[in-house]
Design a protein around this nucleic acid. Structure first.
Lengths: 131, 131
DNA sequence: GTAACTGCAAACACTTTGCGAAGCA
DNA sequence: TGCTTCGCAAAGTGTTTGCAGTTAC
């Protein structure tokens, strides 16, 4: 991640404009449309590098591939994922995280980062279909 | 998950007594100590069934296997995982979830279940080693 | 020129599945 | 007996890695 590469630039541009927490495969397909010679390894390698650099957030999901999210300077937000169907949504909190952060930190010595807030729940559709 | 099975009983007993959010592999090894003839498929199959039944919680982790947690009737707690080293801790909240639940629900129509609260952060050790 | 990056194919880690045998009701 | 679960081995899915060629600086 020290030198420029055209492929990485395309990958970043694609993730940046997507707001649906795409998977590596989805990013790969879109990148391939711009540059048909790109390989899956390049996509994975770059996504990993960008996560390590802190530019992207990586979100693990049970029974499915990881999702990626571009960390913009837009309003702080967390993610909520439906534990049944796996659909993921942003939420923008107007509540104060400080109380929670302090309480959790005192018990666990783990610091919550504002942009690493992922909670799980059950969405309305799944709740109605309750199967 | 309709008939009794000795293997399932052992698996449940093992997860029940572990408080470290074990992986399927760890559960398999421990089950195998009690019953050397048990197979990995049986462990995976039962864990999935117990998750579906709501007895266990399944927690996805990037770059590693899922973790499992027995949902007891003990004090409600969430989980916080260090996004760097992957270590996972319980936290017991004394703050009121209602405000958060309401706010998130209004935006996303996803209902947070008290026992599905998983947040991410960075633990003290990793923060000091910051690499 | 040399270190970083790429595409490809093969390897890898984790999990699921098809099948015939065994167990439970 | 009939449906459920089992163990085994093979397959599936998502991701990483070794290597030889290419690109950036």
């Amino acid at each position: 991640m020290e030198n420029y590469s055209k492929q990485r630039e395309e990958i970043i541009a694609i993730v940046k404009e997507l707001y649906n927490h795409p998977t590596a495969e989805e990013i790969y397909v879109l990148t391939k449309q711009k540059d048909p010679s790109v390989s899956r390894s390049t996509v994975y390698r770059n996504l990993n590098g960008l996560v390590k650099k802190g530019m992207l957030q990586q979100i693990a999901v049970s029974n499915g591939p990881d999702r990626y999210d571009y960390k913009e300077n837009r309003q702080k937000h967390g993610h909520i994922i439906c534990k049944q169907c796996g659909k993921m949504y942003d939420f923008h909190y107007n509540f104060d995280l400080e109380e929670i952060k302090t309480s959790v930190y005192e018990e666990t010595r783990v610091e919550i980062l504002d942009d690493e807030m992922l909670i799980k729940g059950i969405c309305q559709v799944c709740k109605e279909n309750k199967n």
